[in-house]
Every structure is written in structure tokens, then in C-alpha cells.
């Protein structure tokens, strides 16, 4: 890794460089995989290929971006799969009754409500996020089966175009991904909410004593995750032009994987949405590369898993380098009492 000296020492402006470093891993992987994709497809890269990759990446990137808020607060949201499914079937079912627009709005609102439930259960019932969201996720999947027991439903007329279409040669989904990169950066670096989320994950007692409304920030992070997961479900409705009560399940682990590949620490406090979006792109590229290389696409899970471990190893190495120069020193807690020599 290119761990530059400035990122390690107390030099001028080390702060933007350290954060850049974290998402850089995902960017590097994405570029490498893209190059592999081009090589395997004989030196060409068609618009269709690009469309396939970005369409595949968009829902995952949305879910991962939302998950990033939660992970930054040192929590985890395992209900994203359930929320994706529920939003997806709700939008599809309402569209079938001619309520396409209402379906999209209802799905997103439901995602926000799901996040609110998560946040409140975690904050007030003090149930560990892992368990709380695992349970609510199961409830959401169950509700989805009630709404739409079998794949089917319809889609709002404009939705496929807004998700899978192209603007000239540029896939619409690529535009959305680009907007998410910019918006994600701005949200974390330029909004009080973003700073609060990072502060909370960095140290809850410190945030609290600094006057940050911890419960509100944490709940907002889960709401953000719920809304983003619901958007992912709506996008999947646009992509498949139908609803499917099993569609969200594979997204759960991929979402976490994208966040981790993107360089966000599962211990909270550090990470970027940019990284998570790139992480989602990396995972989509893995299956794209396998597809063009002629290897079985079933290998994608093996490779994705390997990438997650590899990224974590790299990050630990970076952390160790950093620790050698400026880790948090612990204050020696010396007892009082007289008679010291």
C-alpha cells in the first residue's frame, strides 16, 4: 500500500489524506477489476457491459451507503435485506393496482419507518443492534410475504427508465452512482449530521458530553439506512419490473461486504460513503469479470469473500503503521497515596 509519510506523521493536512486512503483501496480494486473485465472481453468495453455493471451495482450501492451511517455509529443494520424486500413488493403490488407513484412513495416512507423502529428499539429498549435488526429484518421479510406471497406485481411506468435506462451512452444508473459519490462525501464532511454520526461512533461518551443528542443521531442513522434500503428495493422493482418476496436476502451480506471493502471500520467512527459505493461497484465487477472470463459465476462468492478478508488485512496493516507513530496513548492511571519514593 502507498502509506505515505504525511498520512502517518503530524505533517501538514494529514486528515484528508488518511480518509482518502481508506476508500482508495476500493477504488484501486475497482480499477483493477475493470481492467480485467476489458482484458477478458478482448480489449473492448461496450455500453451494454457498463450498463450491466452499474445497474447491478446501484441497488447494492444504495443499501451500502445507508448501512455506512449505521456502521459509522458503531452499530450494524441487518434488516436491510428485509427492508429491500418489503419496499420492493410494496411498490410492485401497489403498481399492479395502478398506484405506481404512490407505491414508490409508500415504499420509501416504509423504509424510513422501519429505520425509526430499529433506532428506537436499539436506543430505548437497549437491545444490541445485531439482534434488534436481525429480528426486525425477519419481521419485514414476513410482512413482505403477506403483501406479495409469490413473485409478481408491476412497476410504475417511469421507474424502469429512471433506473435502467441510458442517457445517450451513459447508463442512468451510472449517473445515480456518481451523484451518490458526491452526495455521500458532502453529507459526511459538510453536514452536522455526518459529523455527529462519526463523532458518535468515535466515542459515545465524548459525543454525549459535547452535547450531541446521541439518541437522535443514532436513530437518524438507522432511518437513513432504512430509507436507502427502501430505495434499493424500489430500484430493483424498476430493474425487474416486478416484485419478489425473496429478492432482498442476498443483499444483506453483500451490503456489509461493500461497506467493509469501502474501508469503513466496523468499530465505528471512521469510514466513507464514497468507499461503500465503490465497494458495491467492486462486488458487481467481480461477477462481471467472472462472466466474461468464462469461469463459473458461482465462484463470485468465493472471490468476494477473499476480497473482504484481503481488504481487512490491508487495513489492519495500515492501522499498525499508524499506531507506531501516533496511536492513542493511554493515560497512566497512577494511584495516589503518600510515601512514594
Amino acid at each position: 500500500m502507498v502509506a505515505s509519510g504525511a498520512a502517518l506523521g503530524v505533517g501538514r493536512r494529514p486528515w484528508p489524506r488518511v480518509t482518502w486512503q481508506r476508500s482508495y483501496t476500493a477504488a484501486l480494486l475497482a480499477v483493477t477489476l475493470l481492467a480485467l473485465d476489458v482484458v477478458f472481453s478482448g480489449g473492448t468495453f461496450s455500453g451494454i457491459q457498463a450498463l450491466g455493471i452499474t445497474n447491478d451495482a446501484l441497488p447494492l450501492a444504495l443499501a451500502a451507503a445507508g448501512e455506512t451511517f449505521v456502521v459509522l455509529t458503531n452499530g450494524i443494520d441487518l434488516s436491510v435485506g428485509g427492508v429491500i424486500t418489503l419496499a420492493n413488493v410494496l411498490a410492485a403490488a401497489l403498481a399492479q393496482h395502478g398506484l405506481g407513484n404512490e407505491g414508490v412513495v409508500a415504499a420509501v416512507a416504509l423504509g424510513g419507518f422501519a429505520g425509526l423502529v430499529n433506532g428506537l428499539v436499539i436506543s430505548y429498549a437497549r437491545i444490541a443492534p445485531l439482534i434488534a435488526t436481525l429480528a426486525t429484518g425477519s419481521i419485514f421479510v414476513g410482512l413482505a410475504l403477506v403483501v406479495l406471497p409469490l413473485p409478481g406485481g408491476a412497476v410504475a411506468g417511469w421507474l424502469p427508465g429512471a433506473t435502467t435506462g441510458s442517457l445517450g451512452a451513459v447508463p442512468v444508473s451510472a449517473v445515480w452512482l456518481g451523484l451518490m459519490l458526491v452526495g455521500g462525501w458532502a453529507l459526511l464532511r459538510r453536514s452536522q449530521f455526518g459529523v455527529n454520526v462519526q463523532a458518535l461512533g468515535g466515542s459515545e461518551p465524548a459525543s454525549w458530553s459535547a452535547g450531541i443528542k446521541v439518541v437522535r443521531v443514532r436513530t437518524a442513522a438507522y432511518v437513513a439506512s432504512g430509507v436507502c434500503a427502501a430505495l434499493a428495493g424500489v430500484v430493483l422493482n424498476g430493474l425487474t419490473q416486478s416484485g419478489d418476496p425473496t429478492i432482498g436476502a442476498p443483499y444483506l451480506l453483500d451490503t456489509i461486504a461493500a461497506v467493509v471493502i469501502g474501508g469503513t471500520s466496523l468499530a465505528g467512527g471512521v469510514g466513507t460513503i464514497v468507499g461503500s459505493v465503490l465497494g458495491a461497484v467492486v462486488l458487481s465487477l467481480v461477477s462481471a469479470v467472472l462472466l466474461v472470463s468464462g469461469l463459473s459465476t458461482n465462484l463470485q462468492y468465493v472471490i468476494s469473500g477473499g476480497i473482504v478478508i484481503g481488504v481487512l488485512l490491508v487495513q489492519m496493516q495500515l492501522w499498525r503503521l499508524r499506531g507506531a507513530t501516533g496511536a492513542r496513548p493511554r493515560r497512566a492511571a497512577r494511584g495516589g497515596g503518600g510515601g512514594k519514593l
Binding site: 486528515w15 458532502a186 464532511r189 459538510r190 453536514s191 452536522q192 459529523v195 455527529n196 462519526q198 463523532a199 468515535g202 466515542s203 461518551p205 465524548a206 459525543s207 458530553s209 459535547a210 452535547g211 450531541i212 467512527g269 471512521v270 492513542r328 493515560r331
Partner: peptide, 29 residues
């Protein structure tokens, strides 16, 4: 007594944490 700073955030962030200067809701770093 125990440091109550957030180590991953910058000095400026820590100093102004809950009251970062904003224009139209956007933080001016």
C-alpha cells in the same frame, strides 16, 4: 480526567463539534 476528544476527527471538529459554522446547513470547514 479521561480525555473526551474523538480521536478520528480533526482538532477543529472536536473544538466546535456540536456547533460547527454552517451556511444554509452546509458546514464551512
Amino acid at each position: 480526567q479521561e480525555l473526551s476528544l474523538i480521536p478520528e476527527l480533526s482538532v477543529a471538529h472536536n473544538l466546535l463539534l456540536a456547533k460547527l459554522p454552517k451556511r444554509a446547513g452546509i458546514i464551512s470547514m
